[in-house]
Nucleic acid binder design. Structure first.
Ligand SMILES: [Zn+2]
Ligand SMILES: [Zn+2]
Ligand SMILES: [Zn+2]
Ligand SMILES: [Zn+2]
Lengths: 146, 146
DNA sequence: CTCTAATTGAGAAAGTTTCTCAATTGTATA
DNA sequence: TATACAATTGAGAAACTTTCTCAATTAGAG
């Protein structure tokens, strides 16, 4: 069935799926594409709505299944907000942290991880062996400050 | 109706509610007590189960309502985990960050906030005005390392 | 002690997520 | 390119979670 990405892009994405023995289906592509083209995080329902504009027949269950797959592949991340964690955004490349604008919901990438050095330090201070961390920053983006 | 805390403790808690014009009900006390006595975060259902040991008649809706109230009072925080954010823990005093042990689920308090200085720095780097942050650390606690 | 507004329990309702299964479809192989 | 097969899908049912409604109860003020 049809590709939803340009050929070079498509092959790259296909690779991602195939490495894990997964099919590169138009539904999975559509979910990924919708998130890639959004500058902000999206709720499941918004994702479903947008996906249906590309592939009208897509069922909600498939959106759930695709998101699960894409998160496993580290192509997509779940965004945790005060009132819940039912939103998703395209995963930044490598280890990064999102800055979420509380006015317009856009997601800005912060490319450095301030925790790398800190984790060691905290491990020593507390005796706990810190393995991973979860950091999100919230504020006002440039546009919304004006 | 009955107090679920020692008198000095009770008066302190009562204050918290009264300041916001809220009643100090046994149900709210029970939810708070359950979380205070747990060293780890608890799911809604576990909280309900434990609360019913103190107050057998307590309804699930009341647990939801109490948690909402306690979070508003900053006495309780929602814990965000990989697979969802349906768990709650007693709020640390002041601005702190929880370290969650991925083996035994216990929550260790980290008393310093590494983000205070960093927020300013990141604001300058990115142009985004950082207002708040959300940080959780994951690792292995002392006991589980042994 | 009395009064009142806030809170509660119970169950209904709404909303979210997962499951089931027959039909479809990517992809490996020939 | 055609074939075969396992993975995936859509649809709806089922399970689960959260919110709502309302009559009955109750904490706290006076
Ligand atoms: Zn903004
Ligand atoms: Zn980091
Ligand atoms: Zn969350
Ligand atoms: Zn902090």
């Amino acid at each position: 069935m049809g590709k939803l990405f340009s050929i070079s892009n498509y092959n790259e994405i296909k690779e991602f799926f195939h490495k894990k023995g997964l099919k590169c289906t138009p539904q999975r592509q559509a979910v990924l594409k919708v998130l890639q083209e959004s500058k902000s995080y999206l709720s499941i329902n918004k994702i479903h709505k947008n996906v249906k504009e590309l592939l009208p027949e897509t069922g909600l269950a498939t959106v759930y299944r695709s998101l699960e797959t894409l998160v496993e592949l580290n192509l997509v991340v779940k965004v945790h907000l005060e009132d819940g964690c039912h939103s998703y955004a395209i995963a930044p490349e490598g280890h990064r942290h999102p800055i979420v604008c509380t006015d317009c919901n856009s997601v800005i990438e912060y490319t450095e991880c301030p925790m790398e050095d800190l984790s060691k330090q905290i491990s020593e201070q507390t005796g706990v062996q810190i393995n991973t961390h979860f950091l999100q920053l919230f504020g006002k983006c440039k546009e919304c400050q004006a």
